[in-house]
């Protein structure tokens, strides 16, 4: 009886640990929709090719990696060339066309948020879009690398 209980406990712990790990929850997930409608998942710090003059949609999904996050998704910052990415800044190499509101994700489990950003590749070169969340629990600071050709 005791041995059976122990086995159940071990299997429970194992299932929780492996199951939790396989869920592979990214804190931030990025998808880029090209003008032809194709969608690719992009990872921070890995170069993505963009065509000069074309418009793209960046879908950002944020899943807090702990419960009761005090910092709302709206506090997420997008920095390009070390300044806030805004649609009014037409001098930036990636021109922001629109920045949607953060909405609760429909696909993911409860607690995930999504935002859509439309932008145009305006200048040739290598550009890094910094995504920052300042948080006492460590926060997030990563770069999406775009190559405009």
């Amino acid at each position: 009886m005791m041995r059976k209980s122990l086995t159940i406990l071990v299997v429970t712990a194992l299932a929780l640990v492996v199951g939790g790990s396989l869920a592979m929850a990214c804190e931030f997930q990025f998808e880029l929709m090209s003008p032809d409608g194709s969608v690719q998942r992009i990872m921070p710090n890995r170069e993505v090719d963009l065509e000069l003059g074309k418009s793209y949609t960046l879908e950002v999904r944020f899943t807090p990696d702990h419960r009761r996050c005090d910092i709302p998704p709206e506090a997420t910052l997008y920095l390009l060339q070390d300044e806030k990415w805004k649609s009014t800044k037409d001098y930036l190499p990636l021109g922001l066309l629109s920045m949607g509101e953060w909405t609760v994700s429909q696909e993911e489990r409860e607690g995930s948020w999504e935002q859509e950003l439309r932008f145009s590749a305006l200048k040739e070169g290598d550009w890094a879009l910094e995504i920052v969340r300042e948080c006492p629990k460590g926060g997030y600071d990563e770069f999406l690398q775009f190559q405009v050709r």
């Binding site: 929850a25 804190e27 921070p44 009761r68 996050c69």
Partner: peptide, 25 residues
């Protein structure tokens, strides 16, 4: 792969010291 601390979602060590804050999964 995830570029995220996936272990913190089931880490008993983190849970031990943070359960009282209500921010542990």
């Amino acid at each position: 792969r995830a570029i995220s601390l996936v272990f913190s979602r089931f880490d008993p060590y983190y849970a031990l010291f943070h359960f009282w804050m209500g921010d542990v999964f």
